[in-house]
Amino acid sequence: MAEQTALADIRSDDDGKTDAAVVRDALGVGVAVGLSGFAFGVTSAGSGLTLLQTCALSLLVFTGASQFALVGALAAGGNPLTAAAGAFFLGVRNAFYGLRLSQLLALPRAVRPFAAQWVIDETTAVALAQPTRRATRIGFAVTGLSLYILWNLTTLLGQLGAQAIGDTAAWGLDAAGPAVFLALLAPMLKTTTERAVAGLAVLLGLGLLPVLPAGVPVLAAALAAPAVLCLEGRRRGTSRGHARVDDASDAEGSAAGGSDAEGEEAR
């Protein structure tokens, strides 16, 4: 660990990234994503949650995907326990982020429980992009603070705005949450495997929607990832098997050619 820290410090001198640059990048992410809280506030109001319940979700849960999954399932008439289960499984990924960030940030034990509240997709991405431990801490803290404040503020404003205009479904605002998800997800699908997982998840979710209770299709759609990865692993294994067979055939051909040449020389 000491060697890794020393290497990070050396890399920081070469990189030359200033604290101001880290703060600027972190604020950019915090502000851009924090504005999505408007969509959550509106969606939450459409699902029937009160202002207090909506604000409590943003203050205590503070992970956009899980919040949207919860209120989306409730809006569709799903069982609260099923909706909570879907939100929980989406939030589990943050625990894995925390395992990596705990090594990079190396925060005092007294601070870690508070920092854990900010372990989300955006803070992890900004932290991992930094070259040094100091820059990592600054990026994590600035992204977390700006996003937490703005997300909760826009959640409040979105809920109040939805209450002011009345029926959100009549305005089509119930689609705001899914639209935000698609906008955030689309640029991340860069490989064929990722696109296959997304496509299969959509098919599972839409196909099971008429036959399963609300909220359950979302959980079933999560099976798309292991299914695609399993098929991808088998395909690669088959490709390697064919490659080994071809190599063996080439080797046998070379050996046979060598034997024929030796026979000609003997004659």
Rank of each mutant, 00 (worst) to 15 (best):
L104C: 00
L208S: 15
G205F: 03
F89K: 00
L150V: 05
R134A: 09
A225I: 03
V218I: 10
R109E: 09
P131F: 13
A243P: 02
G139M: 11
Q53W: 08
Q130K: 14
A76I: 02
W151Q: 00
A83N: 00
L90M: 15
G30E: 06
C230L: 14
M1R: 14
G64E: 02
D260G: 00
L145D: 06
G207D: 10
V31M: 07
L229Y: 13
P187S: 06
T193Q: 07
V61R: 11
L209R: 07
K190Y: 03
G91M: 05
A87D: 09
L51H: 09
E252K: 04
S47Y: 04
L203Q: 04
L173V: 14
A162N: 13
L101C: 09
G166P: 09
D15C: 15
A266V: 13
G241M: 12
R235P: 04
T191D: 08
A87C: 12
S66T: 08
T82Q: 04
D174S: 10
T5I: 11
V126Q: 12
T193L: 08
A198D: 04
T63G: 12
P217D: 06
A65T: 13
T18E: 15
P131Y: 06
L219D: 07
A6H: 06
T143Q: 05
V180W: 05
L81S: 10
S102N: 14
A73K: 03
A196M: 04
A251W: 14
L145F: 15
G161L: 12
V211C: 00
L185G: 01
L160F: 06
G199D: 06
C230S: 15
L35C: 04
Y148R: 05
A135Q: 11
S44V: 10
L74P: 04
R100M: 01
G48D: 09
G215M: 05
D15M: 11
C230V: 08
L212T: 10
A45N: 07
D250T: 11
E232G: 06
A87M: 10
P217Q: 06
W171V: 12
A6C: 02
A261K: 03
L35D: 01
L160W: 01
A222M: 15
P226Q: 04
F68K: 09
L184H: 08
A56Q: 13
S239K: 08
G258Y: 02
A2F: 12
V126T: 15
T136W: 05
S249Q: 03
G64M: 10
V23D: 08
A83L: 11
D174Q: 14
F62G: 11
G253Y: 02
V218E: 07
D13S: 10
V180G: 07
A255Q: 08
A175E: 05
V31G: 07
T132Y: 11
A183M: 10
R11A: 15
A227D: 07
A227H: 01
A261E: 13
T124P: 05
L157K: 09
R11Q: 05
A220S: 11
A129V: 12
V216R: 02
Q53R: 09
L206K: 04
Q130N: 13
F114D: 02
